[in-house]
Design a protein around this nucleic acid. Structure first.
Length: 695
DNA sequence: CTTAGGG
DNA sequence: CCCTAAG
């Protein structure tokens, strides 16, 4: 098996999404993938286009968000594209949709190849077979499909003739993609394309790279208006700066997670066992399983960046290294992320797309209900109504973001401050966002109510309608039910750990009213399959002990509306735990913890970590006996090296001396008989009392 | 599940 | 911290 490390490192900046490109010889033989390569190819091409577009736009996102900034060259897909007709779409669909494994077998094995192909494509586009996608266009996946595709403009260098060709084919009911390089889809072809929506749909469903975007947008199909521009699904990772994520910037936001791992308002840490359906062990086991699966599934995917698949699970940790008052808060993002790409490349794709959404949303506002500008701020949304249209159309200029509290030393530089703010924002975004709907100043909490019921109609002037973004730092555990959430919510506030660690949080981020008014969300009726993802009243609560939580479908999925849409992408329904495999946040041991550990080991000796754990860290769920063992290991090492070589928070020499003494003692006495465990230690300690430590 | 160790 | 082999 491929080494994990290899998979995780070496990436800087955005990574190239592994977009399933063309089927190569290998893929063709893929047993699981019964789809005609051609079918996929056609879509893959589009996917590639979209991916490329996103990549491109990413770099220029800041400058020209909404302006049609020229065209983007697409990677050459010649090798990978097949030209044949799309066949029985139904057969195809049932086949792939019914077996989630299809995704795996279809893409994973060749991820490397695809990636390479993609890169190659980027580096050496064929002059004659270039595809262009207008910058302003984005691809919207929607169950209604092709009609949206009509908004995507693919231009071939060969132009007109090719153009005609395509249209002709389309009309024929089966778009012949024999020469994908000559495809040109323009507005005028909309209708023709509609005729083939079925086929497209099928293809989409079976194409990993596109699947995610589509499924997300499926829900919004109804809202997609005639605007010629197309938008990408907006729910993905809003973090614009990948480097942030990857570099372990330790910024602490809004949460306090001291040694005992508790979070001010959003995270609840203490014993969640009560509410936690599964034990830590079980949880870890799950993680483990998922992890292994992950490798199998997407051995080539890099996971330097976090992804936010709507159904994925991600962990979000904010922890402060220690309680020293002058220390800056930290927000650590696991650098070694391991994610499950249950949706194949969807994740990566989404990731890239997010940036696009960001840039677009700024200038163009958001249309449809799934759009959420990661960075929007201030202004609320306005609603544009069109008389005859039964649909309520929204044009969200920007979103109001939750309050953000940041505290930095006055000696900080502006640059540093900016960075901090950026990190804070990133943290919010990274943790997932929820959309809140505010009507006439009141928050509309019932997700099950229809627009009509709450008073939003196409003919009304909904000036009082607004949208907000709410951070969802924590995720609702997979098996946690709404009820449980409530419990958890109540408990976290009184978390005993809060009192135990009176140190004040340096950062606070998120809705100030988190405690009193925990964000809530009702389950979407339509959302059976997304059940676990539903946001619940306990959303803000954290399951401190666990590293990962089911992710909400933050943005994209928030306002799901269309039930059928889900049917299109059944594949991921059960893969909610996609990101359970994240590495735990690093939690350096505090001096106090070290002391406690030393104390316990002196008494119990090494080799009885479980006992040590119960004795000294019984209430620290985040410290497993393995952790303690590891810590002891490092302590011994630390104690045996020169002080200059030590890193991290310095451990008092006194403690280190005790470590060496205890280590030495227990090494000789090996695990003595239990009868001695309490007597011996005392002697030892006494013998080492040089430093005045009382036994 | 625990330990012990390597990574 | 993670992962695993062992017991």
């Amino acid at each position: 098996m491929v080494s994990k490390k290899r998979l995780n490192c070496g990436f800087s900046g955005y990574q190239i999404p592994v977009i399933p490109k063309a089927p190569r010889s290998a893929r063709k033989r893929r047993p699981c993938n019964k789809l005609d390569d051609d079918q996929i190819c056609a879509f893959e091409l589009l996917a590639a286009v979209a991916g490329k577009l996103l990549l491109e736009s990413e770099s220029s996102a800041s400058s020209n968000a909404g302006a049609p900034a020229g065209k983007y060259e697409l990677a050459d897909c010649r090798d990978s594209i097949k030209h044949e007709q799309v066949e029985d779409d139904k057969a195809v669909r049932s086949e792939c949709l019914d077996q989630g494994s299809c995704v795996e077998s279809a893409y994973i094995p060749e991820a490397a190849e695809q990636e390479q192909a993609f890169k190659n494509g980027l580096s050496k586009p064929f002059a004659e077979n270039k595809f262009f996608l207008e910058h302003t266009s984005t691809i919207i996946g929607s169950n209604s499909l092709l009609k949206d595709w009509s908004d995507v403009k693919l231009e071939s260098c060969k132009e007109v003739s090719a153009d005609a060709q395509l249209q002709t084919k389309v009309e024929g009911g089966s778009p012949d993609l024999a020469d994908p390089f000559d495809i040109r889809i323009v507005e005028g072809t909309r209708k023709q394309l509609d005729d083939d929506s079925k086929q497209t749909e099928l293809t989409v469903a079976n194409t990993c790279s596109i699947k995610a975007p589509i499924e997300k947008n499926v829900n919004s199909s109804a809202l997609v208006n005639s605007d010629s521009s197309v938008q990408f699904p907006l729910y993905r990772d809003p973090v614009p700066c990948a480097s942030f994520v990857k570099s372990r910037n330790n910024v602490k936001l809004g949460i306090r997670d001291d040694d005992e791992n508790y979070f001010g308002c959003y995270r609840h840490s203490t014993k969640i066992r009560t509410f936690r359906p599964t034990s830590r062990i079980t949880y870890r086991r799950i993680r483990k399983m998922l992890t292994s699966r992950h490798w199998k599934v997407a051995p080539k995917l890099k996971d330097c960046e976090r992804s936010y698949s709507n159904d994925g699970v991600k962990s979000f940790y904010c922890n402060r290294k220690n309680k020293r008052g002058n220390e800056r808060c930290r927000f650590e993002i696991p650098s070694k992320r391991r994610k499950l790409y249950d949706h194949g490349f969807a994740v990566a794709y989404d990731k890239e797309a997010s940036s696009e959404s960001i840039s677009n949303s700024h200038e163009k506002g958001i249309k449809g209900d799934t759009a959420i500008p990661p960075k929007g701020a201030g202004a609320s949304a306005s609603v544009i109504n069109h008389q005859k249209d039964p649909n309520v159309k929204f044009s969200i200029k920007s979103f109001k973001v939750p309050e953000l509290y940041i505290e930095v030393p006055e000696t900080e530089t502006i640059g540093s401050l900016k960075r901090t703010v950026m990190e804070a924002v990133t943290a919010i975004l990274g943790s997932g966002l929820r959309v809140g709907v505010v009507l006439q100043g009141k928050k509309v909490r019932d997700d099950n109510r229809t627009l009509q019921q709450v008073g939003i109609s196409p003919n009304d002037n909904l000036d009082t309608l607004g949208f907000t973004l709410e951070p969802s730092f924590s995720k609702v555990p997979l098996s946690l039910s709404p009820k449980d959430d409530t419990l958890a919510s109540a408990s976290y506030i009184t978390d005993q750990e809060l009192s135990r660690h009176p140190s004040s949080p340096i950062f606070e981020l998120g809705p100030p009213n988190a405690l009193s008014d925990p964000p809530e969300a009702k389950l979407d009726k339509h959302d059976e399959s997304n059940h676990e993802l539903e946001m619940s009243p306990a959303t803000p609560i954290d399951q401190s002990a666990d590293e990962a939580f089911p992710d909400f479908k933050a943005l994209a999925i928030v306002p799901p509306v269309n039930t059928e849409a889900l049917a299109v992408v059944p594949v991921n329904h059960k893969n909610r735990c996609s990101e359970l495999s994240q590495r735990r946040t690093r939690r350096p041991f505090s001096v106090a913890e070290v002391e406690a550990l030393v104390e316990a080991v002196e008494q119990l000796g090494t080799g009885r970590w479980r006992d040590v754990k119960m004795r000294a860290f019984d209430n620290a769920d985040h410290r497993t006996y393995v952790d303690l063992k590891d810590k002891w290991k490092t302590l011994v090492h630390t104690a045996s090296i020169a002080p200059q070589q030590r890193r991290g928070e310095p451990v008092p020499q006194e403690h280190l001396d005790r470590v060496l003494a205890a280590h030495s003692y227990w090494s000789q006495h090996q695990a003595k008989q239990h009868a001695k465990q309490y007597a011996e230690p005392l002697k030892i300690v006494d013998a080492q009392v040089q430093n005045g430590v009382a036994a």
